[in-house]
Simulated assay, not measured.
Amino acid sequence: MLSISEGSELIYDEYETTEPMFDPDPMFSDQILIDLYGRNRGFDIRTNLTFRQENSYSQLTFILFAGLLTEALIVFCLVVMARARTRAVRYAKHVTAALRQESAKLAETNRYLSSTNDELEQFSYAVSHNLKTPIRGIGGLTEMIEEDLEDYFASVDANPGVRSNLARIHERIDRMSRLTSSIMEYSRIGNQGDTGDPLDIKEAIDSMRVDFDLAPEQLQLTDDVGTIHVDTTNLRRVLENIVGNAVKYHVGTAALRINVRALRVGDRARLVVSDNGPGIDPKFHDRIFDVFQTLRTGDTPKSRGIGLSIVKKVVEFDGGKVELVSSIGTGAAFGFDWPIRKQLQSHAQPSEAA
């Protein structure tokens, strides 16, 4: 319903109390003053009974309540999000600070371990080098004793056990000499930089046939790499150790068969050396790469227990990993990757002790 007035003069009025739809207590009413061309006119608006019938209080209350509830939920979500963001920022700062502290500790630990490792390698190199002199001295004294006992050995009263014991001393001296040489070799890995001229794999295998007195059918090669230009001295050392182990541990009546495969995989060579030897029990696959670990008895003169340790250290230094596939009675296959042309950073070699 609407009424319009100008000042105190009523221009238009629908508020007739006798009207059937007149609502003495309207649900909504409002007064609006509008300036029209210098004249102030008032508009009085109120609802009638028809509006009340179509819009009950319960419906309006529900709409109002729903609106207030929605607004409250929105405010609550905003507050929760703000608090969560604050907690997240605080936690992120805490974690970042903790990571920085741990990173600093880790860097310090790495520096300490690197320094300790360098000291240990230099120490083992120096000790092994210095042991060579007394070992040679013991060998010389043993030979002098043998010379002094020549007349005794020629007599009928000579005890054969004396000559046997002297022979055992020679064997132990030879073994100790090989061990000290191996320790020196192991400690120097990684300290010589990229060494050796380009290595033709076929020529290297031909040379190993001569060194190990093997026939062509005993040491075969499948090669699609050709020449390797990276750290070839160490590569030859790895191949010689693996082939030497296959020769050393071959038993039985079957003819020895060693196969070397060299395949190009991207910028690296994949080398696999397999044999038809007695095989290695899987439970020993990790152990055989440890220093001074061997599956033979300690009295075996030719068993140094360091050859495969050298293989593992050399291959890992050049960015590869040694893989072993073997079981008892099936032979063994050693596989590893080797860079073909990548240049390695040089390292200083520890000075030899006099």
Rank of each mutant, 00 (worst) to 15 (best):
S3P: 02
S187C: 02
Y91V: 14
V251M: 11
N110A: 12
G226V: 10
H285F: 05
F284H: 14
L149G: 04
L271Y: 08
K313M: 00
V225T: 03
E316G: 02
G320A: 01
T297R: 09
R261N: 06
T222P: 04
L141P: 03
M1I: 10
S187D: 12
T47V: 06
K313H: 07
E9K: 14
D224E: 10
A262T: 06
R100D: 10
N234F: 08
D174I: 05
T47I: 02
F284D: 05
H129N: 13
D275G: 04
T195N: 00
G305F: 02
L141A: 15
A269L: 12
R168L: 14
S114R: 13
T232K: 05
Q59R: 15
F336E: 01
Q31N: 01
R46D: 03
D118P: 00
P278L: 01
N48K: 01
F317W: 12
K248T: 05
I138C: 01
V89N: 14
L214P: 07
G335Y: 07
T232R: 08
R46N: 03
F43M: 06
L68Y: 12
R168T: 10
I169Y: 08
Y249R: 00
G7H: 04
Y249G: 08
I258N: 04
R172C: 07
N241Q: 09
D118L: 15
G139H: 06
D318Y: 08
P339G: 08
A269N: 11
R296I: 03
R237Q: 05
D290M: 14
N48G: 10
T232A: 10
I205N: 02
H229D: 05
F43N: 01
R52W: 03
G320T: 11
A82K: 13
A126T: 15
I328M: 12
